[in-house]
Simulated assay, not measured.
Amino acid sequence: MDKFFSIVRGMGLQRGPQRWLGGVCGGIAAKLNVDVAYVRIAFLLISLLPGPAFVFYLAAWLILPDQRNVIILQSFLDRRTNRF
């Protein structure tokens, strides 16, 4: 699992500091060097179409590192494995 999280960190994509929910749109906007409003509008338009937009956002929130380079899913799995 550590290799997977290293690959994710190596992509250079982080959840952004300009957050409404989880910072995913802010992180994508920072990586693409565009205004976060454009990414949010694009996400809203995609969400109106039938498709997995919510699932994509949830997965990105769990997998993308935040500004401190912490990945929520990795932290959860580490706590869970250290418990047993």
Rank of each mutant, 00 (worst) to 15 (best):
L49G: 10
D78L: 09
P50C: 01
A60Q: 01
P17H: 10
A60Y: 01
F4K: 14
V36R: 13
L13N: 02
G10K: 13
F76Q: 06
G51W: 07
G10W: 05
F54Q: 14
L21I: 13
N33L: 15
I72K: 06
R68A: 11
F76K: 07
F84H: 10
R83D: 14
F76C: 08
Q67C: 03
D78Q: 14
L49R: 10
V36N: 10
Q74G: 05
L13C: 08
R79K: 09
V39N: 01
N82A: 13
P17T: 09
F4P: 03
N33G: 06
W20E: 15
G12M: 03
R40W: 04
K3R: 12
V55F: 12
S6E: 15
D2R: 15
W20P: 06
S6P: 02
V24L: 01
R68I: 01
A37K: 12
I46K: 15
Q74R: 14
C25M: 11
L49W: 09
A60R: 00
Q74N: 07
N33C: 10
P17M: 07
F54C: 10
A37Q: 13
P52N: 12
F43Q: 14
R19H: 05
T81D: 09
D2G: 15
C25T: 06
R68L: 08
L73C: 06
G16K: 00
L32A: 14
I72P: 01
Q67L: 11
L58C: 08
R68W: 05
R19I: 00
A29D: 02
R19G: 00
L32T: 05
I63A: 11
T81A: 07
L45Y: 07
V55T: 09
L48Q: 12
Y57N: 10
G23K: 00
P50I: 04
P50S: 04
L49V: 14
W61A: 12
R79D: 09
Y38G: 10
I72E: 07
V70R: 12
A29Y: 03
L13I: 15
L48W: 07
A37Y: 06
L77E: 05
K3M: 13
P17I: 07
D35H: 11
I41Y: 08
F84A: 08
I63E: 05
N33M: 13
I63Y: 06
L73P: 02
P52W: 08
I28P: 00
W61I: 12
D78R: 12
V24I: 08
R79T: 10
K3W: 08
A60I: 01
A37D: 10
F43D: 04
Q18W: 03
N69I: 01
R9H: 04
I46W: 14
F5D: 04
D66Q: 01
A53Q: 09
L62D: 11
C25W: 02
L48Y: 06
L44H: 13
S47W: 07
L45N: 12
D78I: 04
V55G: 05
D78E: 14
D66L: 00
G10Y: 09
I28T: 04
